[in-house]
Design a protein around this nucleic acid. Structure first.
Lengths: 100, 100
DNA sequence: TAATTTAACTTTGTAATTCAAAGTACTTTA
DNA sequence: TAAAGTACTTTGAATTACAAAGTTAAATTA
């Protein structure tokens, strides 16, 4: 088993990593907040959240805020667990052989 | 400026991240060591080290060890500096808003 | 000396990924 | 009624990733 095998390929991209790290800090974030924080086009954001949604790492909730449609995203239990595993794999990789 | 803009695209891939993290810990590593540690095919490893070499993040040194050809890779000053910047950007992203 | 092996690639070709831009549907605001 | 906002989907081009096979050159083994 290689040392990078525990790195989750879905998180091995700055945008999805960014989305998840935002959703680890905030309970939820809506489409436009993510778009602004990550500086993305609509289509690009949509495709990345879709990938995370299909993996069931995030939950999508549609509603109306006032009269406007609003889509909120939040990390699922699975998503949070996988994200933590990913970070631990990253840390392990980066701190490799500091002691042994 | 988005919060992921300081993530170096060259390092935004588990294999190249793995190569660099190895070369941050060890002065150098040869082709077969990297191949084994990262569990890669020859061609795949060759293409990733080439990308890092072209960016001048790693240095390639060919020699003979005993009677066998041997290719050693080491991180350049630039590579080390960029890697550290990348890790700091990662940490910043992952610890986002822990205090503010 | 001929065949095989090892090291480190390069080439090839396919598949997947990424992304901007444009298009869509619906609603609301001017 | 026109323009703008929300959240997409579609399109298409470019890039990237990867395994597998081929290559080169030297070394070893038969």
């Amino acid at each position: 088993m290689g040392i990078i095998d525990n790195i989750n390929k879905l998180f091995d991209h700055r945008i999805r990593l960014g989305i998840m790290s935002i959703l680890m800090v905030y309970e939820d974030a809506d489409f436009n907040r993510l778009k602004e924080l990550l500086n993305l086009t609509d289509g690009n954001l949509a495709s990345h959240v879709k990938a995370l949604e299909q993996a069931e790492y995030i939950l999508v909730q549609k509603s109306f805020v006032g009269r406007k449609p609003n889509t909120r995203y939040s990390a699922t239990k699975l998503g949070k667990a996988e994200f933590i595993k990913h970070i631990q794999a990253l840390e392990k990789l980066l701190n490799k052989n500091k002691e042994n």
